[in-house]
Design a protein around this nucleic acid. Sequence first.
RNA 1: GGCGCCUUGACGGAGUGGUUACGUGGAGGUCUGCAAAACCUUUUACACCGGUUCAAAUCCGGUAGGCGCCUCCA
Length: 467
Amino acid sequence: MKLHNTLTRSVQDIQPLQDNTVRIYTCGPTVYDHAHIGNLSTYVFADTLRRAIQLAGFETQQVMNYTDVDDKTIRRSHEQFPDDEPREALANLTEKYIAIFNEDMDKIGNDIRAVTFVSATESIEPMKELITKLHAGGFAYIADDGVYFSIEAYRKSGKTYGQLLEITAQSTSEARIQNDEYDKESVHDFALWKKQKDGEPSWEFTLDGQDLTGRPGWHIECSAMSRAALGQPFDIHTGGVDNIFPHHENEIAQSTALEDNPVMATIFAHAEHVLVDGKKMSKSAQNFYTLQDIIDKGYDPLAFRLKVLQSHYRNQANFTWESLDAAVNLLNNLRAWADLKHQKSGQAKNPGEDTYKAELQTLLAATQDDLDTPKAISALAMVAGKDEAAGVDADKIQHFLNIADRLFGLQLANRPDITHEQKDTIAEREAARLAKDWAKSDQLRAALQAQGIDLRDTPNGPVWFRV
RNA sequence: GGCGCCUUGACGGAGUGGUUACGUGGAGGUCUGCAAAACCUUUUACACCGGUUCAAAUCCGGUAGGCGCCUCCA
């Protein structure tokens, strides 16, 4: 199984550090609002990556965090729950959006049961411990408004700040340096802990004899939680490309400052952003969509998943409603194909010996080659197209569908058969049709259509499909 | 300003030197009592300008346009 590593800017083999288990940490959502389709596409990537790794023969341990304390969650919680105590208001807000996030994940076919979720507010203790150690080690200093990480100290210890991308003096503009409003020693230094401001939720924290009651910085949560949940170093750290800098760079610094080994994770894998109508999503551009917007327009959330899988995770994909229409139609065709296994008239009479064997190899090989899902989906679509003409291999298709589902999560393998009553109606309609009783035939067909079942007549008899 | 990526047919989207990707849609036809996501055919592209090469969507240079990161945004 190969995967692109942002650290080395190359595609490399996944080799678990411990036993046969690939340990994955996925940067999760900040739960202050509905996730948008860009967020969700990144999680489709993380979900599919885990699936592909499992099919490559490895065990996996995947952890995702909820960022449930930060500027945005605090501000929003104050707006929505102005009468509650700050921490209560924060919990009210984030619990609401965590629930919505989990529902969204489920709807788009991401397997949340395969992931261990941890939230920042439940991990304050390990964060405080790490900050305390960093301070004792000389990598953190206390300023008026909080505790900062010292990039200079980190560099002086012989480690590289800028492992994921090169960080130079030229890459930071003068204006940004001058506009910097934080009370810190050096531009790139970042907050490990922020002292409480009026009305903000806070947790007690004493460092070096000083009362620093407040809340954690953003980056420290992932360093503390990934270590607590997976150990260090672990195998793969995933996120969106925007996480590369500063978030992941800062995580690396925090996580490795006190270690001999400057490696936080072997591979950092980043998903490109989704564009909408060729542009970055933004509310002002009116091209900002949540999953609910997609559902409200009548689309199946799994069509969105299929659309995401049809482009490579390291390319900027362009989301348009027209492309979602195309995905819907493909999904319907795949479903109609999968449903042929229930139908004699849709099955091949003399299937070959190795039906689906080569296609299965293509699916697995493609996804194990840096998660080439477009190629794999293309192979899937071709199998379905071939079968529609020749009929499915009733003996072997189930295994193929099982593997395809484990890989893509498109839920093709366990689609139910139609009812006995519906089957009887089809038989009755076929009898009427053969007797050239068109009125009765059409009436029975209409009755089935009312139940979401449509028919097409083939030389082998009628084939039903759901509409 | 610094660094990086991208530009493929109606739409989405693969493809790092020579071979129809694939999907969806459009058009024509076949089959069919009608219908149908069935069958056949068709729509065969690679931003622009130069260069390298027997041969370039694919390599090099330039131009134009788009996108991303440069402190809390997947």
